[in-house]
């Protein structure tokens, strides 16, 4: 039983990391545990920690906790984990089968790194157009987006703090945008900065925050909301730093 709870925790942990809302993870874990023969399951999950206690029919209780420190949004993985937890509930899988499917889910297909860079660049360019920028501004956004992603990629290797990543990205965006204006390529920084800031917005975090808050997981919802607010402040701080200290504004 101990080992089986471990699998349930593994699945839940990976779901949480890939961007599932707390309600879904709690439900998946308790369903899996019931399907595996528990008499009673108590699950408590917030974004950074998981506690599961299982009571078995023979009178034993098992508790496991996990500390979840990272988030790495990946809906392909989440989809597979979701399917796996359905399968466990519907038909009895053996330990080996669960282990194999869990490994498969963890090693699911990912887009390559350079493709991700292109995506960032295209998103930045698209939103520059969206908010009313012209072709020149969109093109500059495209390059700024790629450069920002590249520099953040190296920055991530030095410092692991996510808030700092946002701050650093905002600094690079603002700096590059004001530089292109100094060079006279574009007249106004606004559109380039807006387009690039869109790539930094913690969309999944906010959506999950709302969904968690209003489905009764208030603590998880509040934590996520505060994370989103701090991320927004970090972006603003990065912009302020460059705009004021660089002497571009005022």
């Amino acid at each position: 039983m101990k080992k089986l709870i471990g699998y349930a925790m593994d699945i839940g942990e990976q779901m949480l990391i890939s961007g599932a809302e707390v309600h879904r993870v709690e439900e998946s874990i308790s369903r899996i545990c019931y399907a595996l023969g528990a008499a009673r399951v108590d699950v408590f999950i917030i974004t950074s920690s998981m506690v599961v206690t299982v009571h078995t029919n023979d009178g034993n209780t098992y508790t496991q906790t996990r500390r979840v420190t990272s988030t790495n949004i990946d809906f392909e993985k989440l989809h597979h984990l979701n399917q796996l937890s359905r399968e466990i509930c519907e038909k009895k899988l053996t330990e080996q089968e669960i282990e194999k499917k869990l490994r498969d889910a963890n090693n699911c297909k990912k887009f390559s790194l350079w493709f991700e860079f292109i995506c960032y660049a295209v998103i930045a360019a698209a939103f520059t157009m969206f908010f009313g920028g012209d072709i020149t501004e969109a093109l500059i956004s495209l390059f700024v987006g790629a450069i920002v992603r590249l520099s953040v990629y190296f920055f991530e290797k030095i410092i692991s703090n996510k808030i700092f990543h946002k701050f650093f990205a905002a600094v690079v965006i603002t700096l590059l945008a004001f530089m292109t204006v100094e060079f006279g390529w574009i007249a106004n920084v606004d559109m380039v900065i807006i387009g690039n800031i869109m790539t930094l917005i913690p969309g999944i975090g906010l959506t999950n925050a709302i969904r968690d808050l209003f489905t009764g997981d208030s603590i998880a919802g509040l934590l996520r909301s505060i994370e989103a607010v701090i991320a927004a402040l970090a972006i603003a701080a990065g912009y302020f730093l460059v705009a004021v200290l660089g002497g571009f504004v005022l």
Partner: peptide
């Protein structure tokens, strides 16, 4: 048969008030 969150977020991205946030 897949989680909802991804769909909501990606579909609503154009509505995120990035412009007014910036201003």
């Amino acid at each position: 048969k897949t989680p909802t969150t991804g769909f909501i977020t990606t579909s609503l991205i154009p509505l995120i008030p990035g412009g007014s946030l910036y201003y």
